[in-house]
């Protein structure tokens, strides 16, 4: 009777009476068994697609995912950790589809082969990289050479390109970003360093928020991220419109990719083929990307 209030002591002392701790252990084990049963059942019923990679492709992948889940009942999870991380995830086998805003590099493909992964690219859509400035900035158009000079640090004042007399705040993306790599390749050229005073932001959203609040800033965004808070400037006199990107006149545009391990089949193929369907095309246009 004394032990009633100390179930642990009673248990240790080997009391034969049924104490609270016994009941508790029984309840807990029952709960665990139930949980295991439920999770096994859930795992068997639904197979999931895991997408990881570019923040540019992110909104598109999410919209596709919502549509796909509704239509086929397949659960799709989307992470946005940068194109480089997407490639890494695919190589490590931690995602089914890597979303990338640049093509895989030779080193990445070699690393994938080494691990027995065969990356296959599917082009989802086209994306123009919009050069953006603060809405109050009077500059309307820059040449590709001028933009390159700004990012290399050769031009540091807006006065030199027909703007007000203020220093230019150059905003780029971090080295993890496919958008950054595309921009470097398309505008500055490979292996040419960006000026050390360039600020680095980690996503399209934070570039937009910095440019929209900084009078003398210049940055680049995926076309789908542009809204009224920033002003798009023309490159070589061409604005990144749908027609200009599609026909290739706009100089700073790139394809967006879904990378899969081997030729896509089954559910993965269904997902990767979404951009070809009318519904997929509608979603691409709605999000500000451009159909191929």
């Amino acid at each position: 009777m004394k032990f009633q209030s100390y179930p642990v002591a009673a248990y240790l002392a080997g009391k034969p009476t049924k104490t609270r701790i016994d009941i508790m252990i029984k309840k807990i084990s029952l709960f665990i068994v139930l949980l295991a049963l439920i999770s096994v059942a859930a795992g068997a019923a639904v197979n999931t697609l895991v997408l990881d990679g570019s923040t540019t492709v992110g909104p598109l992948a999410k919209t596709f995912a919502a549509y796909f889940t509704k239509k086929y009942g397949v659960r799709v999870t989307v992470s946005e950790s940068g194109s480089g991380n997407g490639a890494k995830s695919l190589i490590n086998g931690s995602c089914t589809i890597a979303t990338m805003s640049r093509a895989m590099k030779a080193a990445e493909i070699a690393a994938a082969r080494q691990k027995g992964v065969n990356p296959v690219a599917t082009i989802v859509a086209l994306d123009g990289l919009a050069m953006v400035v603060h809405p109050a900035n009077p500059v309307r158009s820059l040449t590709k050479a001028q933009i390159s000079s700004i990012y290399r640090g050769a031009i540091t004042n807006w006065r030199e390109v027909g703007g007000p007399n203020t220093r230019i705040v150059v905003i780029q993306r971090e080295s993890n970003s496919g958008t950054e790599e595309s921009f470097k390749e398309l505008v500055i050229g490979k292996g040419v360093p960006v000026t050390g005073s360039a600020e680095t932001q980690s996503s399209n959203g934070s570039v937009k928020s910095r440019v929209s609040t900084t009078l003398s800033a210049i940055g680049f965004l995926g076309h789908g991220f542009v809204d009224g808070s920033v002003k798009v400037i023309a490159v070589n006199g061409v604005l990144p419109t749908v027609a200009a990107v599609k026909s290739g006149i706009y100089p700073v545009s790139r394809p967006l990719y879904f990378y899969t391990n081997g030729q896509p089949s089954g559910v993965v193929k269904q997902f990767v083929d979404l951009p070809k369907s009318a519904e997929g095309k509608r979603m691409i246009t709605e999000l500000g990307f451009i159909n191929r």
């Binding site: 480089g84 890494k88 190589i91 690393a111 971090e174 080295s175 993890n176 005073s197 600020e199 680095t200």
Partner: peptide
């Protein structure tokens, strides 16, 4: 009043891309 970069931010920002395989 100028932008700078720190060790911690560099580690966080560059870790994603810097895999053993890519250099």
């Amino acid at each position: 009043l100028q932008a700078i970069r720190t060790l911690t931010a560099t580690i966080a920002g560059d870790m994603g891309e810097a895999d053993q395989v890519t250099g």
